[in-house]
Nucleic acid binder design. Structure first.
Lengths: 199, 199
DNA sequence: ACCTTTGTTTAACGGTGTTAAATAATTTTA
DNA sequence: TAAAATTATTTAACACCGTTAAACAAAGGT
């Protein structure tokens, strides 16, 4: 009965199709325009069929969020492995984070933007922790004062993240900004924080 | 005919009532739960009456945004005037900005959060520029290299704003964070940026 | 008292997420 | 192969949303 597997494959395909359709709509019309019926139109089904694959609309968003975190993690890891020096690694990692935010704008908005439930997100989404851990490790390598206190690395991590996330947020909504200035802010601020990392 | 004025006063009251009702609903149930019909319920009218006072829902949000910018401007100015030293002024101003974000959480979310139209916002909202100008002035006072180039102060302003806005955003969605750590990040980062303001 | 203007509501349109019931297609069983 | 059971899919409906046009009520002016 190989038909069982064929059917399963078809089901997997429609599931992927739903996610792809959602992303396509969002890229064309933005998050506000995403609706179950539009997704159904794209995959050439009617809306209720989607509920055979996802519990509800939020389930779709959650899955896309998960994909986003996995992709971001890969990019950041890749950036780290492209350098040997610890400082260069950390800088490259944040630049990769930055690039991801704009290359995968829709994903980033979903992951850090119009979030609904956030407190419970980290529990449901271990994938989100992976990227965080990468940054923590990189920061702790730069901390000379041993043993590294949890508070110190946490503080440094949040300082970095705040700056870059803030810069990203501002640029995602206020498109008019100059890209050169962004790069200047980004690089100089990262260097400045790295410099003061052992204060 | 003093009744004309009495009627106008009543109209103004219902207009304020609409805004107050909207804010009340948002504070109780969040921005996602705000609807025209709910507002109507609170002010004890039916929904269409709101359209006598605002062109549409966005009009209400726009007015609340305006109020937010005015309030923020006042708070920041107040903070500036509480100090004499230029460095202390700038620090106090950003701390006031920070406090506003959490004291008036709903306003801040509206002003910088789930924004819809942003490119056209600054044209329609001169109030938004007031606060920006305050910060620009404070930053330029600290710049020793004269004449002050537009690019430099812009760069410094965005660095500050990114950091603080990022920190605020993260804390508005991820409530679990420790407030002491936030204050530590905030103060140390502000001081660090101020220190490197003439690099 | 009538007419006009103003204030307010009711009803409706097209849209949203979601669910239950009805139907169509497929597979299993006799 | 024909009937039964299971699965896939759709239709119809519910309650909500923003918004608008028409109907209705109340007040004002003549």
């Amino acid at each position: 009965m190989g038909s069982k597997e064929r059917i399963q494959r078809q089901k997997d395909d429609t599931r992927k199709g739903i996610l792809a359709a959602a992303l396509q709509i969002v890229k064309q019309e933005g998050w506000a325009a995403l609706s179950m019926r539009k997704i159904a139109d794209v995959i050439e089904y009617t809306a209720p069929i989607i509920y055979e694959y996802f519990p509800n609309k939020e389930g779709i968003l959650l899955e896309l969020t998960r994909q986003g975190y996995i992709n971001l993690g890969l990019k950041v890891k890749e950036a780290r492995d492209s350098k040997t020096n610890a400082e260069d690694q950390l800088e490259a990692m944040w630049l990769a984070y930055w690039d991801f935010a704009f290359e995968e704008k829709e994903y980033y908005q979903l992951m850090y933007g119009v979030q609904v439930n956030c407190c419970e997100l980290y529990k449901k989404m271990p994938e989100a922790e992976y990227t965080t851990d990468l940054f923590y490790d990189a920061i702790e390598k730069l901390l000379t004062k041993q043993p590294v206190s949890e508070d110190t690395s946490c503080l440094k991590y949040y300082t970095f993240w705040s700056l870059i996330h803030g810069l990203v947020s501002i640029n995602l909504v206020q498109k008019g900004a100059n890209d050169e200035i962004n790069q200047q802010i980004l690089r100089s601020a990262i260097k400045a924080i790295i410099k003061t990392i052992n204060d």
